[in-house]
Computed example of a mutant assay.
Amino acid sequence: MLSSDLESLYLNGRWSVQDSCLCASAPAVSVAFKAVTGEVTFDIEGEARFLFEVDGKPSKYFTVNARKKQKLATPKDNKPHAYRLIKVSESNPGKFCIYDIDLGKKGSFAEKPKSSNRRIEFIGDSFTVGYGVEAKGPEDGTPFEKTNASKSYAFLLAEGFKADYQVNAVSGRGLVRNYANIVPEWTLETLYDYTMMGVPEQDPATERWDFDKFHPQVVVVFVGINDFQGEPPYADAAQYKAAYAKLLDRLRSLHPGVKFLLVSTKTWPNDALTPVVEEIYKEQVAAGHTDLLYKLVYTENTALHGHPSEMSQKELANTLRPLVGRLGGWLSR
């Protein structure tokens, strides 16, 4: 059973560790382990797409729509190899659960992967999720088929810095106002407190996240596209600024010494987001805060439903990398 294997597994992202399973909903959550085995079988329930990696390289994508046992081939050289399962789709709403990781009769777990001394959190929306990134045009496929969180700027940055990470992002949600005012009671401001942000609108009593489980050194905040884009009325600027400042102060309290990168981009139709985020940054600096940087970014939104393409996500990661490195003190010398 999975419970006996937990000490061998290394988790990234917010996970609900239960008696019989591991459950999560965030994009890019991953479970990593080392093992000597000729096969790996995951017993998974939920609707999600996954990438299975062997020794840091993509091995196979697979999809789960209900409960399924997915058997995957591994090197048969009787040597330990590194394995990682990454959730590349989004659960919005929803979750998935892993009930078992079976290595076969002769398989065995090896030494648990080591944690990184670098930790990054990303707070955002569909741009951070990697929504529709694999689409070759605005109407090419569905979000479930074309979203790939392992190709988002967030995952690419975490990988580039070899950092532990959380991608706390939900498509269509704003900090205080969601796109087209969908499910208005479930904004990022509200969802952020939950372990599985895809679950509360189905089950408001679901587990709250324990912030002591992960203390980021850098938080990339890229929120507000849905607050100020599409059909009006948009978010009230004063309410948005107050919620943003409250979030920063709360994170400072939860994670002493944390640094922030505030990110903005052009929104349609009247580019209302950037002036507000610039004001927030200037007000933070005027208040004496020296723990944050600001960056305006531009993306080529040629993928699904006007979202960044694979190339644009790579360029976004490259643009933000030196700023994240500066904040984390991770720049190579």
Rank of each mutant, 00 (worst) to 15 (best):
E279G: 11
G230R: 00
E159A: 14
V29E: 03
K282M: 10
E111V: 14
D249L: 12
R67M: 08
W186Q: 09
L188I: 06
V324Y: 07
H305D: 15
F144K: 01
G38D: 10
E145T: 05
L331M: 08
G257R: 00
K151A: 08
S3M: 15
R14D: 08
A135Y: 01
K34N: 15
K136M: 14
E315I: 11
L156D: 08
S126K: 00
L51E: 03
A158M: 01
T319S: 13
P256R: 00
S150Y: 11
L273K: 00
E45Y: 08
V54L: 04
A66S: 14
P308S: 00
L293Q: 13
L157H: 01
V176Y: 02
L327P: 04
W186N: 08
S309L: 02
Y194A: 02
V220L: 08
L304N: 07
A66R: 12
T128V: 02
E300I: 05
K76F: 07
N12K: 12
G124Y: 03
F222L: 10
D271G: 02
Y192T: 07
Q313I: 04
L188Y: 05
R208V: 09
D236N: 10
K87A: 10
F214C: 06
K34P: 10
N301I: 10
W268S: 15
K79P: 09
